[in-house]
Every structure is written in structure tokens, then in C-alpha cells.
């Protein structure tokens, strides 16, 4: 349980949120991080080899 609370303390949730202001764009840091992670997942999905793909190609 103590381990759980020490883990939770890594991200303080009782403070004001952080926001990024860039011209007309105004976005919370949390939302910005999620969007960046989605872009990384999308690019990784395009380029990372899928397990067993070469074997399937050979059997075609």
C-alpha cells in the first residue's frame, strides 16, 4: 500500500493544471501528451515489424 501511495505521489494532482499557449492554440499539457503518444503509436504501428509477417509472406 505504501508503494502505491509513493507511486501516486509522482504525479501531483492537487495543483493547478499546466497549459500550453501557442497563438490561438490553448491546450492542457495532459491532452498534449496524449496526442503526442497517439502520433507515436500511429507511426510505430506503420514501421514496426509485425510478429510472423515474413513467415506469412513466404507461405503466399
Amino acid at each position: 500500500m505504501a508503494y502505491f501511495w509513493s507511486l501516486a505521489a509522482l504525479i501531483p494532482l492537487n495543483n493547478y493544471g499546466h497549459y500550453i499557449h501557442w497563438g490561438v492554440i490553448d491546450i492542457s499539457l495532459a491532452n498534449f501528451i496524449v496526442i503526442v503518444l497517439m502520433i507515436i503509436a500511429f507511426i510505430a504501428a506503420l514501421f514496426l515489424p509485425f510478429p510472423g509477417r515474413s513467415r506469412r509472406k513466404e507461405s503466399r
Binding site: A44, A45, F50, R56, R60
Partner: peptide, 11 residues
């Protein structure tokens, strides 16, 4: 089909 073996089809 063979082309489905890509991570982009997993989502």
C-alpha cells in the same frame, strides 16, 4: 489476408 499482419490493423 496476409496484409492484415501489420500493427496498424490491431487498433
Amino acid at each position: 489476408p496476409a496484409y492484415v499482419s501489420s500493427w496498424i490493423y490491431v487498433f
